[in-house]
Design a protein around this nucleic acid. Structure first.
Lengths: 338, 338
DNA sequence: TTGAAAGCGCTAACAC
DNA sequence: GTGTTAGCGCTTTCAA
């Protein structure tokens, strides 16, 4: 790759002048500008961003730390964020944690030493100590999808999302409802709370606890646990399941049908994330939707505002978007025939 | 962020010595090493990778250019590559093209000016002129998943993949088979060829041409075209479909069933990529598998060998892996009852 | 309008 | 063993 120095030599000007031309800056005579430009094209010159970064202290690089790209929801997030970043002249360094705290820690260190201008992160867990280093650093960071203390964040209220699922099922006449996912998730808390607000209590015996999140890899775990549950309770003690991810709901639906339960007639199913799976599976899946595009756009926007100094608030800014329920075929007022 | 200079001052040594400690290099006395290390920890010092890159001419950065991350197959690729890169001390700059040539061109320019040590690319099309700049540059590049002239590549033989699908269907007794996808794909060519080798001819009237690839966004297009096809030909003139992606096959299957065709009894379906969809959908989907993990691993390995100079061959190296067929419930010997 | 020079944070000779 | 020095390719004063 050619350097400014080489262009300068060819064009018979100083390297500083080439720099001026490149940056479209200041005062350069039309004459020299065109002369220089000509050599830039001839030698197919492109500025060395590394050198630019070193002196300008701006890398135009964001780091994005995702837990599980196999989950269609997160690949959607990545796609949106890349688009938005690209539109603003930024590139993305992609780090994958697999929901592993150690890797997250490593990713953060790496990104910082790479001088990224900002970090977008879906944190593995809120309490991890290495997040403090991040908090104390002055690298603008926004937590997406999952909210965390001390960080700017753009997310939906997972509680409300969980509550929506519960309300929908309760309102369609279900009272014995199962939950499939992690009990530590906010989704579950909202779900649980909703029962109380209806003057009901959610029975802990209806929980099928899953270790991992929404990646396809959980298939095996789900198969085992659901099958065990179904065989243990025959007849089934619930008329509906709320599953914490669409992928999970997709898999659960199949297992249910293999056990001769019809959806939604015998068992209703609600998923989460409203991915393409919810739209394309049959029966189509009622799912709590997170506005991904909105989240990605706002997150990048917020980062940008922090970077440019437009936004200077000391305390962290929380943008909480509303989830919304996409009602589809997998749920129906109880007792109804089609 | 602290700099070497600051550490040096605190520790009362020269900045070069700090550098030596950091790089674990050469000869530094235990004493000074420990002294320096102590300050490194105290100030939470991490070397500035940008500065390191500038002088060492190594960024430890790979660029990866993907057409459609929403396709589970490509998110799988990304995941594997990230893992493999990370294991070797590399980070990934992720670029998304959406199968758009302009964006691909832009991505390549950006990556080059960012001094990436190598590029992994799933090219949009083989003939794009901007690929020449890449070819002529000395940035090690490997085409993955899709092979392209003049580039190192790691891929399966899509031809053979297509042929496998055809052979499987022909051998299970189908002769009237439909193809859903792009006719320009190698998959189709292999598929077509296989007919000839069986002394048969594939009828062009059985093609449902799709514009785009395997992203969920094609849903609408598929719905329209398939529905039109099914309504036009009643009774149906084929007993099987080969669909160029799993996502496509997933959607097609549902449409078929909505038109009261049973799978595999009335219509057999074969997909491509063997993603989790193939495993989790019902009936499970026979699909041509590409060994993703292998592709990712080998691609990174090859890049590494080019970078370190272990591999110096002038002409491009092609690693063509074998696809393999995962036979599942969506296909069955014709005329058989379960 | 342009050039010379300093310096971003680091590595890598080269001396002592 | 350790310090000094010269860059890496750029941006940005400061003079001219």
């Amino acid at each position: 790759m050619a350097t400014m120095e080489e262009i300068a030599k060819k064009a018979g000007v100083s390297q500083a002048t080439v720099s001026r031309v490149i940056n479209g800056s200041a005062s350069v005579s039309m004459e020299t500008r065109q002369n220089v430009m000509q050599w830039i094209r001839k030698l197919d010159y492109h500025p060395n961003r590394t050198a630019q970064s070193l002196v300008s202290k701006q890398s135009y690089l964001f780091g994005i730390i995702l837990p599980e790209i196999s989950n269609p929801y997160f690949s959607e997030v990545l796609k949106v964020v890349e688009q938005e970043a690209s539109l603003n002249g930024y590139n993305l360094i992609f780090c994958h944690t697999g929901d592993n705290v150690q890797r997250e820690k490593h990713a953060i260190t790496t990104l910082r030493s790479r001088q990224v201008d900002g970090i977008l992160i879906v944190p593995v867990e809120s309490s991890a100590p290495h997040l403090n280093t991040l908090r104390n650093s002055n690298v603008p960071t926004v937590a997406i999808t999952r909210d965390i203390d001390g960080f700017d964040s753009v997310a939906i209220s997972l509680r409300r999302g969980g509550a929506m699922a519960a309300n929908h099922l309760l309102e369609t006449g279900h009272t014995n409802i199962g939950y499939i996912g992690s009990k530590h998730e906010e989704k579950f808390q909202g779900f649980y709370q909703a029962f109380l607000e209806h003057g009901l209590t959610f029975s802990d015996t209806h929980v099928i606890e899953l270790e991992k999140g929404g990646e396809p890899g959980i298939s095996h775990e789900i198969h085992e646990k659901i099958s065990a549950y179904l065989e243990e309770r025959n007849p089934l003690d619930v008329t509906a399941f709320f599953v914490s991810t669409d992928i999970g709901a997709f898999i659960v639906s199949h297992i249910l049908r293999e056990h001769d339960y019809r959806i939604p007639e015998d068992v209703a199913v609600v998923g989460f994330d409203n991915t393409f799976l919810a739209v394309e599976m049959r029966p189509t899946l009622t799912s709590v939707a997170q506005p991904v595009a909105e989240i990605g756009r706002l997150a990048v926007e917020m980062l940008l505002e922090r970077i440019t100094g437009q936004e200077t608030r000391e305390d962290s800014i929380k943008i909480i978007l509303e989830p919304y329920l996409m009602v589809r075929e997998s749920t129906r007022k109880i007792g109804w025939k089609s």
